[in-house]
Computed example of a mutant assay.
Amino acid sequence: MVILNDVLIESEEATIAFNNRGTYYGDGVFETMRCLDGQAIFYESHYFRLMSSMRILRMEIPQSFTPEFFEEQILKLQKATKDSSPHSRLRITVWRNTGGLYTPMDSTISYSIEMTSLHKVFETEGKNEVELFKDHLLPLGMLGNLKTTTKTVNILAGIYKTENDYDDMLLLNQNKMVVESISGNLFLRTGGTIKTPPLKDGCLNGIMREQVMTQLKRMLNYEVIEESITPFELQRADELFSTNVIQGIKNITKYRKKEFEQTTGEELRTFFNKKLFS
């Protein structure tokens, strides 16, 4: 089951115009949430990021798009979903309606909500060997902070990863700074100092990034700074990990010949599992 423009419908019956602007121009945004028993974790942050993204892309936000509206829609979808797992992945996709070429004819929108089952809390995933993806670079600035439906660099990095037997790739921006992984924000620890790229470097303004930074600042044994990360720092680091709301904290175990500790990642994983799922 999915929700398509307020209507709960079977997935195979949910169809949209072939020339919708999301398909034609990547003119859309999306929000991915982790839910427990139909309740979205960090819901308020997700909601405001979605509304902010739509405003930045000059989309017309329907008056019905209140926090309560989406909470009701998520619960309705969860009850209609046959899988009984309490953990689920939710995606809200918004695209501008059909019309115009590069310049839209209007800015009204359509949207869909889909839910898939997750069967676990945040877990250690074992081997996670990464490499730099150098074929294409992420743009600097605000548009890189958004979850738009135009993710060409991430897609090509995913294909490169599969073809070359890596577990993930680290993406570079136009200044050749390390920005993020394919689907997560990057953190680098050297001793008691933890760095993560600043938003101006073009990394995603991640919900889990914000939560992890807040928690790290409460832990007196770490200094947290937002600062550009050069490729040369990777092999000198003690620990690397990436974050997103679906996987939580994902330790990077190896980059080239360097193998990394997993101390901080495990500490954070234990904290968030207790906070969110106990």
Rank of each mutant, 00 (worst) to 15 (best):
I109K: 09
K161T: 11
E180P: 13
L172W: 09
Y160K: 03
L186T: 08
V121W: 00
Y160P: 04
L186K: 11
I182C: 06
L172A: 08
T103S: 14
L146S: 08
I109A: 11
G141C: 10
N175K: 15
T193G: 03
S117F: 03
K127G: 00
H119Y: 14
E125S: 09
Y160N: 05
T150D: 15
F187C: 08
K120P: 00
M105D: 15
D167E: 14
D135P: 00
K127T: 06
Y102K: 14
K151L: 13
G191S: 06
L140S: 10
D135F: 06
K134H: 12
K147T: 12
S107D: 15
K151F: 07
Y111L: 05
D168R: 04
G144T: 07
N173K: 12
M169Y: 01
K127N: 10
F133Q: 01
L132G: 10
T124N: 12
T149P: 06
K176V: 09
A157K: 07
F133N: 02
Y111Q: 06
G192N: 14
K147Y: 09
S112Y: 02
L171Q: 10
G191W: 07
I159Y: 15
D165T: 14
V130H: 02
V121T: 08
T162F: 01
K127E: 13
I182V: 09
K151V: 07
V178T: 09
S110K: 04
G184Q: 10
Y166E: 04
G141A: 07
L143S: 11
V153Y: 12
T190S: 15
G141K: 10
A157Q: 05
T152N: 05
H136M: 13
N128C: 04
F122I: 01
N145A: 13
I113V: 08
F122G: 01
S110A: 08
T148P: 12
N164K: 07
N185T: 07
T149A: 05
T162D: 14
E123L: 00
T152Q: 13
Y102M: 11
L132H: 10
M169W: 01
P197W: 05
T116E: 13
K161N: 08
T196Y: 04
E180T: 13
G126A: 02
E125N: 10
D168Y: 05
T190V: 10
I182A: 04
H136W: 07
M169F: 02
T108F: 12
Y111N: 06
T150S: 15
K120R: 08
P139V: 06
T108K: 14
